[in-house]
Simulated assay, not measured.
Amino acid sequence: MKKVLVVLSEYGFWGEELVGPLEVFDQHGYEAVFMTPTGKRPHALPPSMEAGFFDPPLRKVVTDEYYASKTREIDAGPRLENPINLSTWFPERPYFSSDEFSHKMETYYNTRAECWKELEAYDALLMVGGSGPLIDMVNNQRLHDVILGFRSLDKLIIAECYAVTCLAFAREWDDRKSIIQGKHVTGHAVEYDYKDGTGFLNTDLNMGPPPYPLEYILRDATAPTGQYHGGVGRTTSTILDYPFLTGRSTQDSRLVGETAVQVLEHGLRRYGW
């Protein structure tokens, strides 16, 4: 049985971006194990449970009745209860100014190596998008180390929408080079970014537009020999440049799951470019 580690934000994930790949994994008998940054139960963003939700930049409905219903079902059900607590699993890297920094770094690397051994039980990593990841996933050093662990094991790493930023920021401490340098990826295009209304669960904060344009980050991170693919105007934009599988937005969700199965079952290494 294949086993997938699924990372969800505690500040809201987009329902279809979980349901789409999860349904595919379930159909193939894969086991999905859920994890959040501090072990709190995750919940879907309200617009992703609202059938008929109209997306302002796309000028169309992006939440249909099927995915709204399925999202409400998983949001209210028991499946997401008791996720793995990332903060108690992977170690925190010490501050440079800490006392006995060199010894603490040695402990950090040794502990991380032991955690990486535990990742051998998984076949793939999935990071689900939505606005929530902006708060507790994108600049999460422990999650960066999970990504680096899957990369060191040459295992599939999947990211959707704004969670793709995690790939751009996951870097080893010693060289600090982008792990997607020279790679082909997709992610939320500037044309599809909100001008207002970027909100989160568990807070009344409305950031207006997203705090950064993901497209620009990905263009810089993949340069000079890689490429960002926005696929603006096209229904889907799903890019596989192994070990990275990235989906632009909600409409890619099921395709992301189907492509992941092709990787895990048939050794697919390139798709979408």
Results as ranks from 00 to 15, higher is better:
Ser152Lys: 14
Leu45Glu: 15
Arg112Ala: 01
Gly272Leu: 00
Leu264His: 07
Ala44Lys: 04
Leu5Glu: 05
Tyr66Phe: 11
Thr238Ala: 03
Asp55Val: 01
Met49Pro: 02
Val164Lys: 03
Leu201Gln: 05
Arg72Phe: 02
Glu118Gln: 15
Thr63Cys: 05
Cys166Glu: 12
Val185Glu: 12
Ala189Phe: 02
Tyr67Val: 07
Gly199Arg: 14
Tyr162Glu: 09
Trp273Met: 06
Asp193Gln: 15
Leu205Thr: 12
Ile84Leu: 13
Arg171Tyr: 06
Gly267Phe: 09
Leu148Arg: 13
Glu114Gln: 14
Glu31Ser: 06
Ala170Thr: 09
Met127Val: 15
Asp145Ala: 03
Pro78Ile: 08
Pro42Asn: 05
Ser152Gln: 14
Asp220Asn: 09
Gln262Cys: 04
Ile84Asp: 03
Phe54Met: 11
Thr107Asp: 13
Asn202His: 14
Asp174Tyr: 10
Thr63Arg: 01
Gly182Ala: 08
Val261Ile: 15
Ala221His: 04
Phe90Ile: 09
Val146His: 07
Asp26Pro: 02
Ala51His: 09
Leu143Ser: 05
Arg270Ile: 04
Leu148Asn: 08
Ser102Ala: 12
His144Ile: 05
Ala189Leu: 04
Ala113Cys: 08
Gly15His: 03
Leu214Gly: 02
Leu86Thr: 10
Ala168Gly: 12
Thr186His: 02
Leu264Cys: 04
Pro209Gln: 11
Ala221Tyr: 03
